[in-house]
Nucleic acid binder design. Structure first.
Length: 272
DNA sequence: CTGAGCACCTGAGGGC
DNA sequence: TGCCCTCAGGTGCTCA
C-alpha cells in the first residue's frame, strides 16, 4: 500500500484528528506480533506518555513521546483509523487508547507492518532506521548525490531508486512514474545513467512525490488515510499498471516486466 | 559490498 | 458456486 506520499498523508490525517498533545492510556494488543513480535512492555511503557508529535522518516511513522518513539510501518496493507463508534474488524491488531477516550486502531491483513517502541536517544540506531538512506524531498538529495552513488552500480536504476539504503520513500509505483518522466528505461544499469539524467531523475522524483502528497497519495486497491479518504494520484499515472495501453505522449504501448523483483512499467519510445 | 531470490501473509480477481 | 492460480503499494534475510 504505502510509499512516501501515502505515509505522509497518514501522518497528516492522524495529526488532523487532534491526536497530538493527548496522553496515552491503555494499549490493547489483540495478537502477539505482526512481522515481528511486539516489544515487551509496549503497553506498560506507553501508558501515561504524551504524544508530542507525529513525524515521518522514510516510510515509517514516528509517534514522539517524552521518553520514546513509537515506530509504525504500514507494510503493504496497514492502516490507522479512529475506532469512534465503528465496530472492530478482522485484522484489527492494535488499539491505542488515549485518556480523552479517542482510540486509534491499527488494521493490517497481511501483517507485513511493524510496531516498535524505542528510547528517544536510540531512535536512529534502531534496527529499522539505522540503514536508511537520504530523504528525497530534502536538499541532501541531488543529481550529484545520485550520480556519485550510482557510478559502480551494475544493477538497474529502478532497483537503486527503490533501495531504502540509498534513497528512502520511493517504492514500486513512484519509481516507474519518475523514470518515465525522466525518459530513462528502468532496466538501464545505474552506472550508465548520465549526470544530466541523474539531475532529471531527482527533479522528477521530487516533483512526483510532492504532487502525490498533494493529491492525497495513490489508491490502487485499499489505501485510505486515517480519515478513510482514498488518494487521487492514481488518476495521474502515466505508466504504472498501464501495460499494453497507449503512452499518453507518443501512443506506443506501455510495456511491463519484472525488474528489481517487482512488476515495472515503461514506454519503449519515450524512455531510453 | 552487491544483487538476486525467497520468505513473510491475506484477499481479490480471473480462468475453468 | 467453487477451486486453483497469480498477483498486490514492502523489506529483511540468505546465499553466491
Amino acid at each position: 500500500m504505502p510509499e512516501l506520499p501515502e505515509v505522509e498523508n497518514v501522518k497528516l490525517s492522524l495529526t488532523q484528528l487532534g491526536t497530538v498533545g493527548q496522553r496515552f492510556d491503555q494499549v490493547e494488543l489483540r495478537r502477539k506480533d505482526l512481522r515481528v513480535p511486539f516489544p515487551k512492555g509496549l503497553a506498560r511503557d506507553l501508558k501515561g506518555q504524551t504524544l508530542l508529535s507525529i513525524q515521518r522518516r522514510a516510510k515509517y511513522l514516528l509517534f514522539e513521546t517524552e521518553k520514546y518513539y513509537l515506530l509504525s510501518h504500514l507494510g503493504m496493507s496497514g492502516s490507522w483509523r479512529p475506532l469512534a463508534s465503528s465496530a472492530l474488524k478482522t485484522h484489527d491488531h492494535v488499539i491505542l487508547k488515549f485518556v480523552s477516550g479517542l482510540e486509534l486502531v491499527f488494521n493490517d491483513p497481511r501483517r507485513f507492518g511493524i510496531l516498535d517502541l524505542v528510547m528517544r536517544a536510540k531512535l536512529h540506531d534502531s534496527r529499522w532506521l539505522q540503514h536508511l538512506g537520504v530523504e528525497p524531498l530534502t536538499k541532501d538529495w541531488s543529481g550529484e548525490v545520485l550520480f556519485k552513488g550510482t557510478r559502480k552500480m551494475k544493477g538497474p536504476i529502478k532497483g537503486f531508486l527503490m533501495d531504502q539504503k540509498r534513497v528512502v520513500g520511493v517504492g514500486n509505483i513512484y519509481a516507474s512514474e519518475a523514470l518515465y518522466a525522466a525518459g530513462v528505461k528502468p532496466q538501464r544499469a545505474a552506472r550508465l545513467v548520465t549526470r544530466a539524467e541523474c539531475e532529471l531523475i531527482v527533479s522528477h522524483v521530487q516533483r512526483i512525490l510532492s504532487a502525490a502528497i498533494q493529491a492525497g497519495g495513490s489508491t490502487i486497491r485499499d489505501y485510505r488515510n486515517s480519515n478513510g479518504e482514498s488518494g487521487r494520484f492514481q488518476n495521474q499515472f502515466q505508466v504504472y499498471d498501464r501495460a499494453n495501453q497507449p503512452c499518453h505522449h507518443c501512443g506506443r504501448l506501455i510495456r511491463a516486466k519484472v525488474i528489481a523483483g517487482r512488476n515495472t512499467f515503461w514506454c519503449p519510445q519515450c524512455q531510453r
